[in-house]
């Protein structure tokens, strides 16, 4: 890879610019769908961008007594980790920018960093609401992260590879095997809701209880980047789920392949929007209970199924 194409990859596609544009578009689709499901008008298409630009122009406040470097770096860490993880996920084809054996583990690891950044940001804010939010965020990690790992492990077991590109290539070669992983697909979607802190798992930033949780002391540019990181995380999470569980249209021309990929991501975002209109927010204890007593067993059941299927074929 030449320096030129590497710079292009990092800054334009599939890196920063593409991810930011897609992230803001994804936020719009999510908000519009959410509104229409609730029988409302919803925002115009430029609303996420307008919100982002407005926040950029607002005053930055760092609370007294906060750990300034951590407080400042948390949003950057979150965004950087998300952007970095897109290079290991195949978009519209069976190879990512930097595929290697084990990139699935790396991506899962990178996707935990935003949550850790939320925790650190909240923890250093010195606000009691932020502290409660930070603790809830980190409690929630233990509830949804294991089912997500297990759910993604199952297709990997069947494909016999630890690379996302490898998994995508395997399922592209065995078109009907994706049906085996449907349970895991559901588990991954539920875990994604938890990762993105959306209803019913928005306990860490529950507006009516702890105002904005970890983000309560954040303002201006830093809040804008936190929100951008969440938008991008939604896209990366959806891309990961799409690459592993929805292996269709991978052998097409690049342009067509990207279109199919965008459609898949939007479908997943649509399902997430529908899910978040459906429920009341769960209490943190109910959330943990639900994840361990319902979601995790289903994920383990998926592993069992895949082990059996692997023996059969």
């Amino acid at each position: 890879m030449t320096v030129g194409s590497a710079v292009l990859n990092i800054l334009v596609f599939p890196g920063f610019l593409f991810l930011v544009a897609f992230g803001l578009a994804g936020e719009f689709v999510d908000r519009k769908l959410y509104a229409r499901l609730q029988n409302r008008q919803g925002p115009p298409w430029y609303q996420p961008l307008a919100d982002f630009l407005k926040l950029l122009g607002k005053e930055n406040v760092i609370p007294e007594g906060a750990d300034r470097p951590t407080f400042r770096l948390a949003p950057v860490f979150a965004l950087a980790a998300v952007v970095a993880s897109i290079f290991y996920i195949p978009l519209g084809s069976t190879t990512s920018v930097l595929p290697f054996e084990g990139d699935l583990i790396v991506v899962l690891y990178l996707l935990v960093i935003p949550t850790v950044a939320f925790f650190l940001g909240g923890w250093t804010s010195r606000s009691v609401f932020a502290t409660i939010g930070a603790f809830r965020a980190i409690t929630q990690v233990f509830a949804y992260e294991i089912p997500l790992f297990v759910a993604l492990l199952a297709p990997a077991l069947l494909a016999n590879t630890w690379s996302i590109s490898g998994i995508a290539a395997y399922y592209a070669g065995h078109p009907w095997l994706w049906l085996v992983n449907l349970l895991g697909f559901g588990v991954a979607l539920v875990s994604l809701l938890g990762k993105l802190e959306k209803v019913p798992f928005d306990t860490p930033e529950a507006e009516t209880e702890i105002v904005a949780g970890s983000f309560i002391e954040y303002s201006g540019r830093r809040l804008a980047f936190f929100r951008l990181a969440i938008d991008c995380e939604a896209i990366v999470g959806a891309s990961l789920v799409a690459a592993v569980f929805l292996p269709f249209g991978l052998g097409l021309t690049p342009v067509l392949g990207i279109l199919v990929y965008v459609a898949k991501v939007l479908l997943i975002l649509g399902i997430l929007a529908l899910l978040r209109t459906l429920f009341a927010r769960l209490r943190i204890d109910q959330m943990v209970h639900f994840c361990w007593s319902v979601v995790a067993p289903i994920a383990f059941l998926q592993i069992l199924i895949n082990l059996v299927v692997r023996e059969l074929i």
Partner: peptide, 16 residues
């Protein structure tokens, strides 16, 4: 009540 428990859809519907 819907809003307080994070069920905004209930809020939007009943207020509609």
């Amino acid at each position: 009540a819907g809003h307080e428990i994070g069920f905004d859809t209930l809020l939007m519907y009943s207020w509609r």
